[in-house]
């Protein structure tokens, strides 16, 4: 049963990932990433990480992807002349990626960690992966990381406003909003 669930989730996650890379329209790539994240959350559940799976759905597939959808719709479906200007990377990119995959697989499977062939420790402590356990770890053992994360999010929010905010009067004409000529195209 676990095997069926794993391979179902793995095929969905890999299919979504391939669709992100291969689909030509950025809008569809965003939607493919949502599919990928949902299937990946299912795999997280198999690893007894309930809270992370829920956070993945809520934060990633929910909030972050909404930003992506807005930006992809705002800048429009740029018809990318896919790979035209970099034929070398078009050939060597997948080869390098396949080599990287083989290398990581050899490094992982060839390691002397015999526990990798097992399903992990047989008996995890009760409450493993629940919000209670993760929250306890986060607010007791990793409090500094937690506070640093909150500061990082604040800085990121300020940076987004500074980068994407309108600067109509203060800067030159190059900063003005394009008036319709290069407006957002159709998402589809």
């Amino acid at each position: 049963m676990v095997e069926v669930a794993f391979f179902f989730g793995a095929i969905g996650a890999i299919g979504g990932a391939l669709a992100v890379v291969l689909l030509r329209n950025p809008f569809y790539s965003v939607l493919a990433l949502v599919v990928h994240l949902v299937f990946l959350a299912g795999i997280f559940l198999l690893l007894l990480s309930q809270f992370i799976a829920a956070a993945q759905i809520v934060v990633y597939a929910g909030a972050v992807m909404v930003i992506y959808v807005f930006v992809a719709a705002y800048v429009g479906g740029i018809e990318e002349p896919m790979f035209d200007s970099s034929p070398k990377l078009r050939i060597f990119g997948p080869i390098i990626a396949a080599a990287l995959f083989i290398e990581i697989s050899i490094a992982v499977l060839g390691s002397s960690l015999t526990a990798l062939g097992t399903e992990g420790v047989a008996k995890v402590e009760s409450g493993f992966g629940t919000p209670e356990a993760v929250g306890r770890l986060m607010l007791e053992d990793f409090l500094i990381a937690f506070e640093a994360a909150s500061l990082l999010l604040l800085v990121a929010a300020v940076a987004a406003i500074v980068l994407a905010g309108r600067k109509d009067e203060t800067t030159g004409p190059s900063a003005t909003v394009p008036a319709g000529s290069t407006g957002p195209g159709e998402p589809g």
Binding site: F6, I14, L18, V21, G93, A97, I104, E119
Partner: peptide, 26 residues
């Protein structure tokens, strides 16, 4: 499921993303 399977899957996802970063231009 052995943990190896999850690690190979993670390596595969990482490699697919890596290929995308190299190949795509948008």
């Amino acid at each position: 499921m052995a943990i190896e399977w999850y690690l190979v899957l993670s390596a595969m996802l990482f490699s697919i993303g890596f290929a995308g970063v190299l190949v795509r231009r948008n």
